[in-house]
Amino acid sequence: MRMMSLIFMLATPAVAEICPAAPDHAAAQGRIIADLGTARTATEAAILTQGLWRLWTDAPDATAKAMLDAGMALLQGGRPAIAVARFDALVAYCPDYAEGYNQRAFAFYLQRDFAAALVDLDAALAINPRHVAALSGKALTLMGLGRDAEAQTVLRAALALNPWLEERALLVTPPGVEL
């Protein structure tokens, strides 16, 4: 019995730990989003967007960062189904960390499980309503679900924060309206 308890404790270190609050990057995120609105080139916007990603992936602690990095590596390696398990652990450990939900949503999206992706994107946006990537991901997910009118509304919200998003090419404008 003692051996089983020891094995359980070693196998699940996050269960015994408590996730600290996620870093508050609202002010920095706001500055970057403001700068995106005045960016003059795609290169300038790309550099600013990298800054947003640094903020979003700034995990609450080393345990959360390891889970996030492992899941993202699996996504980059083309293994989204396995990545979901890493993000499940991250979300269970840090339920107030938006990026855990956003990355799990991306893993679901890659598997074409749009309904599950939408749930996680809504969770990420409840935590960080100005998470541009989650907004654009939600627009794409809604398109995947055939909910194009809603997708356009969400896409416009994402573009209001970052007019340089590649997804702007998916924006449908009514006839006679120029953007």
Rank of each mutant, 00 (worst) to 15 (best):
S5M: 11
R40D: 15
Y97S: 00
V154A: 13
G51S: 04
F108E: 02
Q152E: 02
A42H: 15
C19S: 12
M143Q: 11
L165R: 07
Y101T: 13
M4Y: 08
D88P: 09
T41P: 05
L121E: 10
Q152H: 03
T153N: 08
V84P: 01
Y101V: 07
C94K: 00
D61R: 11
C19R: 00
P163V: 04
D58V: 04
T41Q: 15
R79F: 06
L75N: 13
E44I: 03
L90C: 12
P163A: 07
L75D: 06
A66R: 15
A34Y: 11
A149E: 13
P80R: 06
A157S: 13
L161M: 06
R168I: 02
A26W: 03
A115M: 08
T12H: 15
P20E: 07
A42N: 14
W56D: 15
L155F: 03
A46L: 08
Y101L: 03
A134T: 00
G137K: 01
A64L: 05
G30A: 05
L6M: 09
C94W: 02
V91N: 14
I33C: 03
M143G: 11
T141W: 06
A107K: 01
L179N: 06
F108Q: 03
T141P: 02
I127H: 00
F108R: 06
I33D: 13
T43Y: 10
L74F: 11
V132P: 01
R54V: 11
G176Y: 01
Q152N: 01
E17Q: 15
L171N: 09
A105I: 05
P20H: 09
L155A: 03
A16P: 04
T49D: 07
R54E: 11
L68W: 03
G100D: 10
T57N: 07
L170Y: 10
R31S: 13
D58N: 10
D88Y: 03
A133S: 09
